[in-house]
Simulated assay, not measured.
Amino acid sequence: MFHFFSKKVFLKDLLEGFVDIHSHILPGIDDGAKNTSESIDLIKGLQALGVKQFMPTPHVMQDFYPNTDETIGNAYQKLLGALDSKMLSEITINPAAEYMLDDNFQKQLETQELFTLKGNYLLIEMSYFQPPINLEEIISKIKSKGYLPILAHPERYPFYHNTKGYYLKLKQLGCFFQLNLLSLSEHYGKNVEKTAHYLIEEQLIDFVATDTHHADHIEKLSNLTLHEDLAKKLANVIKNTCSTFSVI
């Protein structure tokens, strides 16, 4: 669909007071901020975009980032110790985690020692190469343990780009969807952008987040423009994200 006469809107104009439920700003524990100085730069950059509340979600991946409550807690304390009182008074930071659906996750699910977002919302992801064979079973199990699964960036899994009906199936199983804001541009590739637009148009997205790892992400977010009709639909999802996860 072409939007020749549609007005452009800057994404950042929609983000005033935003609650960012997915980012990698904790220092030194995954592929995001390498140290506290990078963490602070990312926080300042996100603040300039309008982010007020931060829920950092470091990766928990058995083979790459075997993070635990302890490693996440330590990185969080290190970050708090590095922030000055002015910054701390302007923002809130409540850490959670982004769980890869690997064997280790299934063990952690049994013990129910999981770092959730606000309430029982649990951020999950899977490999970009293939989904777990028993994905539907895992989602049902997450729910049976009292958690509310949020699938991070569903638009980025290439194996669903040509089987869009499967998104609906996951939603029917009770899985929430969190879209990466940069997916609304060419940042992750054309197919991801196309799928992101489809999911927003079909109102399949529940929440949005920045998934910030480094300064390049913030620069691209600050320059991102959207067609007016898409911006209106996105504004509703932003509102839902903030009202669901705000802790103020």
Rank of each mutant, 00 (worst) to 15 (best):
G32C: 07
H3Q: 12
K233E: 14
G165W: 03
D211G: 06
K12I: 10
G174N: 09
H187S: 05
G81E: 09
L79K: 07
Y198E: 01
Y128N: 06
V247C: 11
E202Y: 07
T57S: 15
T244A: 13
L42K: 05
Y128W: 05
I205V: 13
L80M: 14
K190Q: 08
K164S: 10
N191V: 04
M87P: 01
K190R: 10
D229M: 06
V60W: 12
V60Y: 14
H161A: 11
K86F: 05
Y147H: 09
A196M: 02
I43D: 01
Y65G: 14
K141R: 13
P131N: 08
F176G: 10
T57Y: 10
L135W: 07
T36Q: 00
T68N: 14
L204Q: 07
H197Q: 04
I248G: 07
I142Y: 11
L204V: 07
D30A: 10
P66S: 15
A235Y: 09
N180I: 11
L15C: 01
K233L: 13
D31Q: 09
E125M: 02
T92I: 00
K118H: 02
V247D: 13
N120Q: 08
E193L: 04
T225A: 08
P58K: 11
M87H: 01
Q172P: 05
I72W: 09
D20W: 00
K12G: 06
L101R: 06
K171T: 02
V192K: 04
P158C: 11
Y76L: 11
E70M: 15
Q47H: 03
L168H: 05
N94M: 01
V237K: 12
L122G: 02
Q108T: 02
L83F: 10
T71Y: 12
A97Q: 02
K86A: 03
K232Y: 12
G28N: 03
S39E: 03
G28H: 03
A96Y: 01
K118A: 01
I139S: 12
M61H: 14
N74Q: 15
V9Y: 03
I72P: 05
E110H: 02
L182E: 07
G45M: 06
Y167Q: 00
F177E: 09
K8C: 04
H153Q: 15
M61W: 13
K145V: 05
F177M: 11
E98S: 05
R156A: 13
E125K: 06
C242A: 10
D30F: 10
T163P: 03
L11Y: 05
V237S: 10
N67L: 14
M126A: 07
G73A: 15
Y147G: 07
E193N: 10
V60D: 15
D13I: 02
L181K: 05
A235D: 12
Q106P: 00
E110G: 02
F64K: 12
F176Q: 11
C242K: 13
D102I: 03
T195V: 04
D20H: 00
G189S: 07
K169G: 01
